[in-house]
Design a protein around this nucleic acid. Structure first.
Length: 823
DNA sequence: ATAGGGTTAG
């Protein structure tokens, strides 16, 4: 089939507007622009004696011109020249037009190894790895041409399958070209890319001649397989052999500084870069920015970025991520704006940073648009990273339903997707849902739990006190070899201490590495919630003497430990130490702890004065702490004052109304109690439903207040009625000030009896053998009346009862509580 | 006419 084309006449174009006889595929020539014709014309004219195709090849800057040239080659008969047609294959590949590259290739009647190599390379340069490998197979099976040492460096790059790789390796050996530096480096790279670093190293060791590329290949092999120390070893070896370092070496080795936490080395490399003038390489500068950013040195990162003469998308993404990861959303956003002003289109990595920024700043408004942007481009269908970022973003913003939807919409999920969802539920207080998702994940073939999975599920188990399930996870961690991992270990410590097994927490603490503050914080907090303030302090001293730097979390744990144990002086000492010795600015949590510490100990005026001197605005937790202290110490006036301030900042939390009503009741102001009740009712409070849980036979039962749907409901209530009678005979008087509902007295008694902690205790009593310790979890603070009741119950039933509430542990035994009513 | 080794993420 022949198609006739007449090029559109342009001012000068008439001279080349001769009629060409072309195959039909050149129909697309009709889209040739006058400009491209002009360029071609100039190229052709530049040599007047005969067509200088060499010059024309060089002037081909877009695929239309290339096609025009192609046409001329065909018409002039030069297409039969294998030199020209091979160049054409390469030209199309460079211009990104794989199908025409392929066409040009197929038009070559007798393809030699140059043509085959060019075609394979063309596929690889355009990311068509599958086709490249297929083309290589065709070369082997049908062409009668032998691959050579130009073939393998290219085709090895395309190889994504170990068996293919080994076959190629065999051919290389058979052809005796394995000693070629290019081929050998490519083998190193192939093995490392497929994760077989040891094979890569073997290739490297077998090399008799090593050039820069060989060393670089080995270094990057280690880097990309997470073996930072080995990478550095090779790097040092390379320097000892007197090799110079080129930009490739530098940009390969720089990323290992961050995981090794080695800023000094990074700076030394930077010095080398400056000394040898390598800083103008974009890869090098980008790697420097990333190195500095990951090690928290934003200023040097910024300086490198500022002095780059040319920046690419990676440079922009890196500087944006640098600020985003160091919690400076505002500057990160500023760079994003600049990036767009400089004409760069955001890519998937930019979007990952953006979603992180939105999550960090709690900017719910922008979450949808970002999500929509990704969907419009179809990126969510092909990039698991992005899907995971979206799930994480919604979860962090508290929109767990959106997170779930985004998760479900992902065509493929990996272990990180599951972890993100589990963490999302856990961090939004939905522990049971988190556990449910975890079980679903377990039933999913192809998903292997990793460190992140353990770190996401353990806090959920701690939250509801699922000790037995937690121990199962501990076993799994051991099997995975992760139980001594700092993060998993810390979660386990936290799990054991929150599930009432402080001893197990301690013995675990003694096993995990404790160079960082993370496990220390967990164990100090563990001592604190169990009421062992002195021990917490002692541990803090050990921490200091071991040279571990405490952080702001350490001081929250420590201050609350002091406050639970009534260690006022020590608490104040910590508060000072934190600022003076460690330069940590107290945040609201620290202030809350201090107010609590002073107030609970009875220093109400001091506590109030403390609030007045705060340099930041007190929030509800701070005023709530003062209000709680006023209840304990019966200070009515200050209590009124505190509750007024409190309701100015948070009028939604029903717990504070209970406190206030309690204060009124303590001084016998029943009208005040009524007032608070109706106030709470009028505001239609979104109250957090109170629930308690207990684990019996590997199963966690959760009881909501007044819940009557439990299968053992009848037995539970009859147990409670029986206990109530005995308690009363021992002198128990119900304290109705803990009931907010405006109902009759006996109804109030009924409400107290139906409190979730009592249902859980009663269930524990009827479901376990005598003398067994009962362990209960309550999501809010334990109710004051239930606290009294539990003391009686522990005496009547001769049981130890351990109640963990949102604040601390209460060990009930023989009618007493470990907290000494100081809580 | 054809070749290897490089920087950013959840």
């Amino acid at each position: 089939m022949v198609f006739t084309l007449r090029a559109k006449p342009t001012s000068n174009g008439n001279r080349i507007s001769k009629i060409l006889q072309l195959p039909q595929v050149f129909l697309s020539f009709s889209s040739l622009t006058p400009n491209s014709l002009q360029t071609l014309h100039n190229g052709l004219e530049s040599n007047t004696r005969e067509l200088d195709f060499n010059a024309v090849f060089l002037s081909c800057t877009d695929t239309h011109i290339a096609k025009c040239l192609h046409a001329h080659l065909l018409v002039s008969g030069n297409a039969r020249n294998i030199f020209f047609s091979t160049r054409l294959v390469n030209l199309y590949a460079d211009l990104g037009d794989v199908s025409f590259s392929c066409l040009a290739f197929e038009q070559i009647p007798k393809k030699n190894v140059f043509a085959w190599n060019s075609m394979i390379s063309g596929y690889v340069r355009n990311g068509c790895y599958r086709q490249a490998v297929d083309c290589y197979s065709r070369l082997l099976t049908t062409s009668g041409v032998r691959p050579d040492f130009f073939t393998f460096p290219v085709v090895l790059k395309a190889c994504w399958d170990l068996s293919d790789g080994r076959k190629m390796h065999c051919w290389i050996s058979k052809l005796g070209i394995g000693s070629d530096v290019f081929v050998a480096a490519s083998l190193v790279h192939m093995y490392s890319r497929l994760g077989f670093v040891d094979d890569a190293r073997k290739m490297f060791d077998e090399m008799t001649v090593r050039d820069m590329g060989s060393w670089n290949a080995m270094i990057s092999a280690y880097c990309q397989n997470g073996k930072a120390a080995e990478a550095l070893e090779v790097f040092e070896e390379m320097r000892l052999e007197g090799m110079k370092l080129d930009p490739v070496t530098i940009s390969s080795i720089l990323p290992v500084c961050a995981p090794l936490n080695d800023l000094l080395r990074g700076m030394l490399i930077h010095v080398y870069v400056i000394k040898h003038g390598l800083e103008f390489d974009v890869f090098v500068s980008n790697a420097l920015i990333n190195m500095y950013a990951k090690l928290g040195s934003l200023d040097p990162a910024r300086r490198v970025f500022d002095q780059m003469p040319v920046r690419d998308l990676v440079s922009w993404n890196s500087i944006i991520a640098a600020y985003e990861q160091n919690n400076d959303t505002t500057r990160a956003l500023g760079f994003f704006v600049q990036m767009k002003q400089n004409g760069f289109q955001p890519d998937a990595l930019t979007l990952v940073s953006l979603s992180s920024m939105v999550a960090q700043s709690g900017d719910s408004q922008n979450s949808r648009p970002i999500h929509a942007f990704m969907m419009r481009r179809g990126w969510l269908l092909e990039d698991i990273f992005l899907g995971n970022a979206v799930v994480d973003m919604y979860a962090k913003l508290g929109s767990i339903a959106s997170a779930q939807k985004a998760f479900e919409a992902m065509p493929d999920k990996d272990v990180i997707s599951w972890n993100a969802l589990i963490t999302g539920y856990a961090q939004n207080g939905l522990a049971s849902e988190a556990i449910e998702v975890y079980h679903m994940m377990e039933g999913c073939s192809g998903i292997v739990p990793d460190q992140g999975t353990l770190v996401s599920i353990l806090p959920a188990l701690s939250h509801i006190g699922a000790l037995q399930q937690g121990m199962r996870i501990h076993g799994q961690a051991i099997r995975m070899g992760l139980h001594l991992d700092v993060f998993v270990g810390t979660c386990l410590i936290d799990m054991y201490s929150k599930c009432g097994r402080l001893d197990d927490a301690i013995s675990l603490f003694l096993q995990v590495p404790r160079m960082s503050s993370v496990p220390w914080n967990a164990i100090i907090s563990g001592y604190g919630i169990h009421g062992h303030g002195e021990k917490a302090l002692k541990l803090f001293q050990e921490m200091q003497s071991e040279g571990v730097k405490p952080d702001h979390v350490t001081f929250v744990s420590l201050l609350s430990a002091c406050s639970h144990a009534g260690l006022v002086d020590q608490g104040q000492w910590c508060f000072q130490l934190m600022q003076e010795d460690y330069g940590i600015k107290p945040n609201l949590k620290h202030y809350g702890c201090m107010v609590d510490l002073l107030g609970r100990a009875g220093h109400l005026e001091k506590s109030y004065a403390f609030i007045k001197n705060m340099p930041i605005l007190p929030d509800s937790s701070v005023w709530g702490a003062l209000l709680g202290a006023c209840r304990i110490h019966g200070n009515f006036e200050l209590g009124m004052f505190a509750s007024n301030r409190l309701f100015e900042v948070d009028s939604e939390n029903v717990g504070y109304y209970v406190l206030l009503s309690n204060i009124y009741a303590n001084v016998g102001k029943w009208d005040g109690v009524d007032k608070v009740r109706s106030l709470a009712k009028d505001r239609g409070l979104k109250k957090t439903p109170g629930w308690s849980s207990i684990e019996v036979n590997n199963r966690v039962d959760v009881f909501y207040t007044g819940n009557k749907s439990h299968p053992k409901c009848e037995e539970i209530y009859s147990e409670l009625r029986m206990l109530l009678a005995k308690m009363k005979s021992l002198g128990y008087v119900p304290d109705y000030s803990f009931v907010l509902q405006d109902v009759e007295e006996d109804e109030k008694e009924h409400i107290l009896t139906g409190h979730s902690e009592r249902l859980a205790i009663a269930f524990g009593l009827i479901s376990t053998p005598p003398k067994t310790t009962i362990r209960i979890f309550k999501n809010l603070r334990v109710c004051g009346d239930c606290h009294t009741a539990t003391k009686f119950i522990s005496k009547i039933t001769e049981r130890e009862i351990v109640v963990r509430d949102s604040n601390r542990f209460h060990h009930f035994k023989d009618g007493n509580c470990s907290c000494g009513d100081y809580w």
